[in-house]
């Protein structure tokens, strides 16, 4: 039998996003709330001055949180429904399973993404180069968070802890670091703490690309290097440590 890899990816998207959105439309609203509520708060507090950076922060939050959400969603499907056990004993590979599920997280965030992209188009007027830079940074963020999420889900045996852990990681890496506003707003020594999060480097590149932050070329290069190295290291660890078949 010739098996369709596209179907194997589609299955993940359907189970982890489309079917839930179709059968319970209320979830469409909940996916919008987190990134947009922070966007509104930052905009109001700054009297509109940080609207542009807040849009970029919203995008970072969506891409990073989506990957991290994979951890709790996969853990839920694995521990409560034993779905992963059924899939391990089938012709689906771990990569296709993860690929479909990860894509589902982005599909799940489409309502919020559409709003932010429309706002970015209207307010930021990005050039093609800026769009390319923002897209690369967001994809790198997504790759990092998906790798973390999938790796943690394969170790998880408790869905309650998984959801708590997901929320904690999202808070630590997507809400607390200066992604909705430039790092210059963070007083010393907290700005040094912010550099412990890869999302800070992503935000610096994006804020700088759209003119909201002035940083030296050396600093920009350092941001890219850190982001790429973090991404490579986390993907490497995830590939090495992820458990598909249990031991």
């Amino acid at each position: 039998m010739k098996r369709s890899k596209l179907s194997q990816i589609l299955a993940g998207v359907l189970v982890n996003a489309i079917y839930e959105m179709k059968n319970y439309p209320i979830v469409l609203i909940s996916t919008i709330i987190s990134p947009l509520s922070l966007l509104l708060v930052i905009t109001f507090v700054s009297s509109g001055a940080l609207f542009g950076t807040a849009i970029e922060g919203g995008l970072i939050m969506i891409f990073f949180s989506s990957g991290i959400a994979l951890q709790s969603d996969l853990s839920h499907l694995k521990n409560d429904f034993k779905l992963q056990d059924m899939i391990v004993s089938s012709p689906t590979s771990s990569r296709l399973y993860m690929g479909g599920m990860a894509l589902a997280e982005i599909v799940y965030s489409v309502p919020a993404l559409v709003i932010l992209i429309v706002l970015a188009g209207i307010y930021l007027h990005p050039s093609l180069l800026q769009i390319a830079i923002l897209s690369i940074v967001l994809l790198l963020m997504f790759a990092v968070s998906v790798a973390i999420g999938f790796m943690l889900s394969t170790f998880s045996s408790d869905v309650v802890q998984s959801y708590a852990f997901s929320r904690l990681l999202s808070l630590l890496f997507a809400t607390l670091p200066p992604v909705y506003y430039p790092i210059t707003y963070v007083p010393s020594p907290f700005n040094y703490l912010a550099y412990l999060s890869p999302t800070t480097y992503a935000a610096e590149i994006m804020h700088s690309a759209t003119g909201y932050l002035n940083i030296s070329t050396n600093m920009l290069i350092l941001d890219w290097v850190v982001l790429l190295v973090v991404c490579a290291v986390i993907l490497f660890i995830a590939i090495r440590k992820t458990r598909w078949r249990e031991v």
Binding site: Q8, N23, Y24, P91
Partner: peptide
């Protein structure tokens, strides 16, 4: 899976097995 119907449950498993 509680947010799915029986047809969606069976279909998704078959898709995972690589059916069109």
């Amino acid at each position: 899976i509680r947010w799915m119907t029986p047809k969606q449950t069976v279909m998704s498993y078959l898709l995972w097995r690589g059916y069109h």
